[in-house]
Design a protein around this nucleic acid. Structure first.
Lengths: 365, 365
DNA sequence: CTGGACAGCGAAAACGTTTTCGTGTTGAAA
DNA sequence: TTTCAACACGAAAACGTTTTCGCTGTCCAG
């Protein structure tokens, strides 16, 4: 491919057959058309410097051979990659998948690519992966911190990267210690709404099935649960609150929990817990929603298809992803100016009423 | 940042405060230490050309300021990005999420990154996104073709890209017209196993709830269903087969279908359909598994949590993703030699027995 | 002394772009 | 005829690496 290509067909052939990829480059076009590289570049950018003739010739050639500029070279030159890194704890997870989906759509529309990294909830992998990406591969991060990271409370890697000048947008599992743009849902208020709704239905003994407290969202939802109860002058009973560490064994824990406690309402921080709760209740001979009303966070696949379908607090993950992407790209494209002012966007939750909740208050006719 | 940095602390400060990212580069180290760029590069690579003294000095400096080479520059030089592009129809989808998860793990272990693109089942987006990535951003593709693409039967973009020398691995929704490595599950055999299992339980009238035929996997699973019946000399009844186009309205379709037909077994090509089927059966007063046994493809979140939990054909998505990534990376790192021999790996399905199936054959004591 | 071996380092090309700053050739105005 | 702008184009630097090659000096064997 280094000899001068004597005519069109030669290029076509070698272009198609060669096992290696002799991607068409400016240099090759230049050599072929007996002009300089600069001329080719300018012509393809419709520069007025180049005569109409030459421009047409070059553009025709480029089009014919489907020339496309090399992204890596562009990235090096512009010192931007038009790629954003998204780091999440797991991907086999309805909520995170929707977030990615939303972020990808926005990124795509605005001409960016998404490179994903899974931290698998491990601190080390989060650190290593970010360090790797931060070295030129991407222009900015969208991130939800790993469980282990929240547990450790060590956010040096984030702060480091931000200090180096790389924009970061945190979402969902955010941390106060880090100063950057954030997108969250109002977990507290969402939980509050849900529990208030249960109270409104006439529930007197509402169980909370949550995760351990070092997960920020678990903590916040727990707070919302308590707030709702207190607002109605209802007591928060410790034994009506179950905190689950290991999601794998959650079913058994939930079953035992329900065996020991009488409840007429359940608020679960995710679909899985809600499903297990309903199963547990069924074993006790309790029906949902007739005997017990159940609400779950996360409006996922289970909620829609379960029997009964689940009333849920929808987190609008796609919206979060979209918002996060927009925030990041806005900052990337902002012309490097005034004091950075960080914003925290709150995505509203909405209560989606389905079959798992039913009023206990019978209005006499 | 362009003046010579007079001492260490100066660099630290400007390094931390500057809004732009003055990433430490070989050139800066060279200037600072009064050596040439080549010397720095060699020293950091522990080249024997450089004296022990200079090497130590340079390495100390680099370590102190946390020098890391710029990935983009490396990519340009090596003409490899160590990044692989994965294109899937959707991500809010349990199976695809597991595939990504498996691929990411392997990629990570072998030092590669994953850049994701969603085709949203659209032909155009598939083409455009691939075209974009193919221009230097990635070293190879992992892809499951969009629904619309399969419907159209137009695979020029794939063939083009492969001809240009970029390795592609297709998974799940593969196409015969394209010559490359592939990873599939044996949809036909998986379906066959499931239906045979139903037959073994004593089911006489087994319904199939599938997707339209242009989706390769739908077609194959339908084939497996028929094969299983024929093998047992059972008739394939057209009206026991439901093909669903629009997954959004699937529930209604399934309900009506079940109203019209008497069945004692259901084989659904995904969890959602199975769940809807059970709902429909319940409305007819039929219980699962007592009256009807149900098996679904896709061993997802719904199957595990549903009541009754679903007997499923597990597709081992993570394994597929891992295999695909390994195939791709193997090819990328193979030293450019002999005739390319493409392989098609088959990931075995396994039948996971849960509560939605039960034998109808009562063994007399 | 001379010659070569060798150690230690730097210059420069290359990867594929974009962009600035020439430079040579016109045609027309002075 | 000179001068000057406009026009059309090319050379070269830059982005940050790696790597080949060449250069200098030192030391030792002949």
């Amino acid at each position: 491919m280094d000899e001068k290509l004597s005519c069109f067909w030669y290029l076509t052939v070698s272009y198609k057959r060669h096992p290696m990829k002799p991607k068409l480059t400016l240099k090759q076009i230049a050599r072929e058309l007996d002009v300089s590289i600069s001329t080719v570049s300018k012509a393809l950018h419709d520069s007025m410097e180049i005569s109409e003739d030459t421009r047409q010739k070059i553009k025709a050639f480029a089009k014919y051979y489907n020339y496309m500029p090399n992204n890596i070279a562009l990235s090096l030159k512009n010192r931007k990659t038009r790629t954003i890194g998204i780091v999440i704890p797991e991907i086999v997870h309805h909520f995170f998948a929707t977030v990615i989906s939303g972020a990808e759509q926005v990124a795509n529309e605005r001409g960016y690519n998404l490179i994903i990294c899974l931290s698998n909830n491990s601190f080390d992998r989060e650190v290593v992966n970010m360090e790797l990406l931060a070295n030129g591969s991407i222009d900015g991060f969208i991130l939800s911190v790993a469980k282990e990271t929240q547990q450790k409370g060590d956010y040096h890697h984030l702060i480091e990267i931000i200090n180096r000048g790389m924009p970061v947008v945190l979402f969902d599992r955010v941390v106060d210690e880090v100063n950057c743009d954030k997108v969250i849902i109002d977990d507290k208020k969402g939980a509050q709404k849900a529990v208030s709704y249960l109270i409104g239905l006439g529930c007197k003994r509402i169980a909370l099935i949550s995760t351990v407290d070092y997960i920020s969202v678990g903590k916040l939802r727990t707070q919302g649960y308590k707030d709702a109860l207190e607002r109605e002058q209802m007591k928060v009973e410790k034994n009506l609150i179950l905190k689950i560490e290991d999601i794998e064994n959650s079913e058994r824990e939930i079953m035992e929990f329900l065996k020991k406690n009488e409840v007429d309402g359940v608020f679960a921080v995710n679909e899985q817990f809600a499903a297990s709760a309903i199963k547990g209740l069924a074993q006790k001979g309790l029906k949902v929603p007739e005997d017990v009303s159940v609400i779950a966070f996360t409006n996922g696949e289970i909620s829609k298809r379960f029997i009964p379908s689940l009333t849920t607090v929808s987190q609008h993950g796609a919206e979060m992803g979209a918002k996060a992407a927009n925030l990041l790209i806005d900052r990337l494209e902002k012309p490097e100016e005034e004091e950075e002012q960080f914003t925290t966007e709150i995505i509203k939750t909405s209560l989606i009423e389905r079959e798992s909740t039913k009023s206990k208050i019978y209005i006499s006719l």
